[in-house]
Design a protein around this nucleic acid. Sequence first.
DNA 1: CGGGATCTTGAACTATTTCAAAAGTCGTGG
DNA 2: CCACGACTTTTGAAATAGTTCAAGATCCCG
Lengths: 226, 226
Amino acid sequence: MDASFLLLPDAPVHARSRKPETVLPDEGVSMHIRRYGARQRVYSAGDPARTIHEVAQGCVLVSRYLGDGRRQIIDIVGPGRLFGFASDLHHCTAETTVASMVCSLDRNVALTSPAVSNRVHTAMLREIDQLQTIAVLLGRKTAIERVATLLVGLCGGVEDGPANLSLPVTRSEMADYLGLTIETISRTLTRLKQSGLIGLPDAETVRITNVARLHHVACGDMGEAA
Amino acid sequence: MDASFLLLPDAPVHARSRKPETVLPDEGVSMHIRRYGARQRVYSAGDPARTIHEVAQGCVLVSRYLGDGRRQIIDIVGPGRLFGFASDLHHCTAETTVASMVCSLDRNVALTSPAVSNRVHTAMLREIDQLQTIAVLLGRKTAIERVATLLVGLCGGVEDGPANLSLPVTRSEMADYLGLTIETISRTLTRLKQSGLIGLPDAETVRITNVARLHHVACGDMGEAA
DNA sequence: CGGGATCTTGAACTATTTCAAAAGTCGTGG
DNA sequence: CCACGACTTTTGAAATAGTTCAAGATCCCG
């Protein structure tokens, strides 16, 4: 569970920079670490799924597109998490939001090593759980509940009390993750601010006044109070 | 891929009956087949996830509930598919829609046998793909697109031409799977009927005039035409 | 300081929901 | 065999959450 492809220290998700950086390419190895700039593709829909990836540092968005350009962000992947599980071809596109380091390992190699294979299995279980959670969010939650859920999720392990977040994603990405529009995200954040649940020192920073309270909003345990 | 826990012939998903039947219990074995009546629990949220299940016959719904009763159906599982992947406790509830046969295998046993373990891995990859697909549906598709997607999905392998479906689910279940309400499902079906894309001989039967055409609607390749 | 982006806010619109009632469907029992 | 009651489905009308369109505000760099 705490085994890792690489032994880099866990780094926090970095705030996004709006300036793309350069890539150091490195092809044809069964395992490699690569440095990506902000907003760069790790793989695209249609690519063969030969490798499994791990975010060593930074943040990766996994998304799918409809023919007309509508996007659904499937997963926001932070340091330590694996992504890119697929049987044959990728149906998703993966791209960094900020300068990131991604470790990629040949899938066949990964599945022959018992230790790594085990880690992959665990990560897949987690991925399934995570996707089920987002299905509930997209299918049944209101806008406030969705935004609250995202914020609570982003603040990681914090269970209670206040927390400060440096959003690793833009409003547009929040919208495409939560099945909403940019405008609704913005309005909802200000509503949360007005109700005192969060503070917004600037657009990229959220101060959660009380994580437990926001968590209640996220689960819809708030509706009947009003 | 065609390996199976058991060697029962693949049976079609049966139309739902509204009368519950009896169960033959059978506890404490690492692997067993069990017969379930319609609308019976296979497992509930909170149960320890000790076994992996396969639908041998019938249809199983996997769903999650919000505190206030809102339900999201995560997966509609037909014969031959595995379900119940979870690391520790189930967060989902699984229940039959119709009289069904479910084969259950101890998780640890499953993962030690290479053949079975491999099948489980493949099924998990498929599950992830499937969940990503439904996330796009829930996050970004319109009501017509959602219903069309479900119908195309339910008619299995048929790629083109007409197809007849015996719906294994009620309107309420369709609604909770597609993130809509019963009424919207009903209205959308009649809209599809009026536009000639489907026929509705009775409430539980759908005749798809042309699967390929419905598939286009499902993908949103229809919006710009109007 | 100016240009281009992101973000916020406002007002009108619309897809879907909600509430309400009618129409089918199905099994039961007289 | 038909009538009754319970349930699911369909349809209608009104309400609403969220979208769309449009305009400002803010921020970020050069």
